[in-house]
Computed example of a mutant assay.
Amino acid sequence: MFIEFYDKSATRIWSRIKIVFLGIVSVSMAPVELLAGDFSNAQDRRAAAWILEALERDYSDSENDLSKLKSLVAEPADLDKVETAFTRLQACRTSPKYYNNPLPIVAAEHHLYIRYLANKNGDSKLSALPKTYYDAKVELQNQNRLNWLRTTDQPVSPPSESVVEWAVLGVQMGLAEYKLRTGDNPAPGEKADELVGMLEAGKALPIFSWGMQFFDPTKYSRSNGMNCAVSDPGDADDSLKLP
């Protein structure tokens, strides 16, 4: 699968070069105000609709009710279904139409990606990863280095607390799905540590994240002809359009 390719390739690269980053210290600078704040109800509904579109779940009677949309999002999904949903949605995320990173689609993609990882690995330490990534973005934004985390042709999305909330929900769902799938309780593992190590490498040297674009699952899948296959929720329902 595309993501399995990414996991293995990224792990090999990281294991070979992580020694380079030992002893590198970030420069401290005065903080600045975040570029993105909490979502409006409309943005949250749009994020939920993106997830449901990617999972191919019907939400036609719930477009205007955020609690109903979240209930539909929280219904368990098979591991393969979540993987496919993420891969399909990321192909949309990196398409020219969404070049400027509309945060609802960012939130949906983050939710599905970490939901897949949690379901696959059962690593309970993934629960802390959304906030860790958010903090790294805030730090780099304060230093005008946010695009050091860039792995595609698009700019890095700004830090957003609401994106974190959707990702945290993704971890919670993924760990619950892991238990349903395996019968085992989630436990501390190695996946979160691996991803944090790669994040620290990207913070220390921009060429690391730049190099990862060649192993990015969307780049890999799109090279095999995969394009955006998820319908934009706003195209079918005016209540989900954003100004």
Rank of each mutant, 00 (worst) to 15 (best):
A10L: 09
K179Y: 08
I13Y: 01
F5K: 15
A30P: 13
V196E: 13
Q154H: 11
S15A: 11
N101F: 01
A54K: 06
P206V: 06
Q90A: 03
L79P: 03
A107E: 02
N101D: 00
V156R: 09
R93A: 09
S162I: 00
R150T: 09
L79F: 15
N185M: 07
V196F: 04
A36S: 07
E63N: 12
D58R: 00
S162Q: 00
G122K: 02
D216P: 13
I17P: 00
P96S: 10
Y98C: 04
K125G: 03
D58K: 06
P243N: 15
A77Y: 07
S60V: 06
M173V: 12
P233W: 11
S127V: 14
L89Q: 01
K179F: 13
S26G: 14
D61Y: 07
V82Y: 02
P155Y: 12
V82Q: 03
N64S: 11
S127Y: 11
L103R: 06
D123I: 10
S124D: 13
V171R: 05
S9K: 08
S157L: 11
I19A: 08
D184H: 11
Q213D: 05
P155V: 08
L22P: 06
K191M: 10
S221A: 05
M1G: 12
Y220M: 02
A128I: 00
L89F: 07
P155C: 09
E83D: 07
F214V: 13
R222H: 04
P96N: 06
A48Q: 03
G170W: 01
E33W: 08
I207G: 01
T152S: 15
K241T: 14
